[in-house]
């Protein structure tokens, strides 16, 4: 049997933008105030009556060729056997280089403990055979998690049956969160960030 490679499928036809995943994540991983491991971006477009609202749940893509692992000067990021990238708080010195390099902006410095954290698809749960907290919490079953190398898993079946997209395929890190029905307008590039 092929090596386990976990992947996420987010079925945006089912997502209702309830933010249950964000809340479950905060609770499961003790995510500090002001930072997020998993969140839902919301956009709306058009003018009445031709309008639509799109939800874009975002989380770490646990890429196949991750730039965060390449640039970390102290080897604090490790690719686990199942493809998930874990961070080691004992090695991290919060130099923020991984945050600068990450194309998905999923990393943050813990405001008190001062090391970089990110979504690791609830590695501690996955290791003992449970699903990630956000998958358990999703009432619409829009988040599907599993081994994409196992043809019998839900993830493999969905990937085989539907057209899927990833965010920023051109960046070349081979992200492993696949979206069904992804709206390109939700991946907005023209907004300004107040950096100063």
């Amino acid at each position: 049997m092929a090596k386990t490679r976990y992947a996420f499928v987010i079925d945006l036809r089912r997502c209702i933008g309830c933010n249950s995943c964000s809340v479950a994540c905060k609770s499961e991983n003790s995510v500090h105030l002001g930072v997020w491991m998993s969140w839902v971006k919301v956009i709306q477009k058009g003018e009445f009556p031709n309008v639509s609202r799109s939800f874009l749940p975002l989380l770490c893509n646990n890429c196949e060729d991750p730039i965060c692992v390449t640039v970390c000067p102290v080897n604090a990021n490790r690719i686990e056997e199942n493809g998930i990238i874990s961070t080691d708080p004992h090695r991290c010195v919060a130099c923020r280089y991984c945050m600068a390099a990450c194309p998905y902006e999923v990393r943050y410095v813990h405001p008190i403990k001062k090391f970089v954290e990110k979504c690791n698809w609830c590695l501690h749960r996955v290791k003992v055979g449970l699903l990630p907290a956000c998958v358990e919490a999703c009432p619409a079953e829009a988040r599907i998690f599993g081994d994409m190398n196992d043809p019998k898993s839900d993830v493999s079946k969905l990937l085989a049956k539907h057209p899927v997209q990833v965010i920023k395929p051109e960046i070349g890190t081979e992200p492993h969160v696949f979206y069904i029905n992804l709206d390109n307008d939700a991946i907005e590039k023209k907004r300004k960030v107040d950096v100063l």
Partner: peptide
């Protein structure tokens, strides 16, 4: 017209 309804705040990396 695309309007951003909700997004989280991201930390500025290098200052």
């Amino acid at each position: 017209m695309i309007e951003l309804v909700y997004d989280v705040h991201h930390q500025v990396t290098f200052r």
